[in-house]
Simulated assay, not measured.
Amino acid sequence: MTEQPGWRKSSWSNQETSCVEVGRVDGGAAVRDTKNRAAGHFTTTTPQWSAFVAAIKAGRFDG
């Protein structure tokens, strides 16, 4: 996967620093912590990312 993702933060985050940034990479997505960008990031495949987003939208992680 390409390592130049072009990071984006959710508009729901406003000015918060306790959130994640997501970037597009070849074949999927990259995710990193906005509080500790130097710690690196992890990548997912497109199907993994799509399944994760679908689970969020379905409320599977609601407490």
Rank of each mutant, 00 (worst) to 15 (best):
A51M: 06
R8K: 14
V31M: 03
H41W: 14
N36G: 11
S10F: 12
E16G: 03
Q48T: 13
Q48S: 13
W7S: 00
S50H: 11
V22M: 11
V31S: 01
Q48I: 06
S13I: 04
T34A: 13
A30I: 09
R32G: 09
W49E: 00
I56R: 02
R37K: 09
M1C: 08
T2P: 01
G28V: 15
P47Q: 13
S13L: 06
K57M: 06
C19D: 10
F52L: 05
G63V: 12
W12L: 10
E16D: 12
G59R: 03
N14K: 08
E3W: 10
R32K: 11
V20L: 07
I56N: 03
A39Q: 11
T34C: 15
S13C: 10
Q4Y: 07
R37S: 09
G23P: 00
S50N: 14
S50Y: 06
D62K: 11
G59N: 09
T34M: 11
H41D: 04
F52I: 09
D62T: 14
E16C: 02
Q15A: 04
S18G: 07
T45W: 08
C19P: 10
T34L: 14
S11R: 07
A58C: 02
V53D: 08
C19G: 11
Q15H: 03
C19T: 10
K9C: 02
G28N: 06
A55H: 05
R32M: 14
N36T: 15
V53K: 04
G63N: 05
V20H: 00
A30F: 02
P5N: 01
M1T: 12
V22T: 12
T44M: 15
S10G: 11
N14D: 11
G63A: 12
R60Q: 13
Q15V: 01
C19Y: 07
T46L: 14
Q4W: 04
D62I: 07
R24G: 04
F42Y: 06
T17W: 08
S11K: 06
A58Q: 06
S10H: 08
K57H: 15
T17H: 15
G40E: 08
T17A: 14
T43M: 03
R8L: 09
T44Y: 07
E21L: 07
A38I: 04
R32N: 11
T34S: 15
W49D: 00
E3I: 15
R24S: 13
I56A: 05
R32C: 11
R60P: 03
K35G: 08
A29M: 10
A39H: 07
D26I: 07
T44Q: 09
G28W: 00
R24T: 14
T17F: 09
K35H: 04
R8C: 10
N14M: 05
A55V: 03
T17R: 05
G28L: 06
S13D: 05
A29H: 02
V31L: 12
T43G: 03
R60F: 05
P47K: 11
E21V: 04
V25G: 01
A38D: 13
R8P: 04
S13E: 05
I56P: 01
R60A: 12
D26S: 14
V20F: 02
A51E: 12
Q48Y: 03
V53T: 14
A39I: 03
F42V: 10
T34I: 14
V53Y: 09
